[in-house]
Simulated assay, not measured.
Amino acid sequence: MTRLLSALLLTCVTVLAALRPANTAAETWVMGAMEDFAPFNYMDNGTFTGIDVQIMDEAAALIGVTLDHRPVPWKRMLLDFEGGKFDGVFQLTPTTARFEKWHLTGPLRTTRSVYVTRADSPLQDIRSPAELDGLVVGLVAGFTYEESFDSNPAIRREMSQDDFNNIRKLLLGRSDVIVGGHATLAYTARQLNAWDKLRVLPTPLVELGRYAAFPRTAEGAEKARRLQQALDEMHASGRIQEIMRSALNR
């Protein structure tokens, strides 16, 4: 009986393999991403990893796609994307202009952008950008934070190339307060052994999703539709929340 069942199982597998379409080789999408944005995407012993990388890889696997990640500096990533070098990019803050320009898919996750100051600062809270008057605000060049904040000409900006330098400038007194994603700033500050020297203000600037983008073409629209379906499934099952908890609670 056991041999009979084994033979039947082998036959079924063989039949299914024969019925599988010949073009089942996984598609590959070339995806641009910021090269150093821990804990969401970063290099670890030569492997590109992180929360968003894992979310994107698992979503792609659900639709039979393999992602060829191309981690590069943020500004270059956007330029290369517009130049047609990537099939898509992630993780973008949503803006009206980006929704009009590209097919945005998501959110992958939600980010709470916060104000952070030195632990000994007299600042207690910032409830609106109007309260930034007279303060130097540290930001990362090329990043989008929130549309009204980004377009406010009255904000005195101290620009940095990344969150590491943004935090260093804050500690050196070159800025009074910095803005960034809570998880990213906390991770970076701990890498610098500086988290106990900083304080997160109670009121966040904004809480927004982070998106993947594809060109506004028929092919881009189809990729966006398929990825959206996979992301919706992962949100509904709780998988994305599980990935976030597992990574941030280490």
Rank of each mutant, 00 (worst) to 15 (best):
N41Q: 05
G83I: 15
G88C: 06
E207W: 01
V140I: 12
T111N: 06
L9Y: 03
Y187I: 10
I51E: 06
L4F: 04
L79R: 00
T117K: 08
E242C: 02
R245Y: 15
Y145M: 06
E35F: 00
F48A: 15
D163L: 14
P94E: 01
A61M: 09
A26Y: 07
T2K: 00
L16G: 04
V136D: 12
E219V: 11
F164Y: 10
A154Q: 02
E158D: 10
L92M: 08
G88V: 02
I63T: 08
K101L: 14
V114K: 13
R216F: 15
S246Q: 09
R127G: 15
D36R: 13
P71M: 00
Q54Y: 05
W102T: 10
G32E: 15
R168T: 10
Q54R: 03
E35P: 02
A221K: 08
P153K: 12
V13F: 13
E242M: 01
D232N: 10
A236K: 00
A230C: 05
S148Y: 11
D125E: 04
R168Y: 07
C12E: 10
T188L: 02
L123W: 01
V140T: 13
N165M: 15
A7K: 13
I240A: 00
K223W: 10
R76W: 06
A154P: 00
A186V: 12
A218P: 04
V30N: 13
G83N: 12
P71T: 01
R70C: 09
P153Q: 14
R168E: 13
I63D: 05
T105Q: 08
L108K: 02
G220D: 15
A61R: 10
L201N: 04
H235P: 03
T47P: 12
N45E: 14
R245F: 12
F99S: 09
D44P: 00
V65W: 11
D176Y: 14
L139C: 03
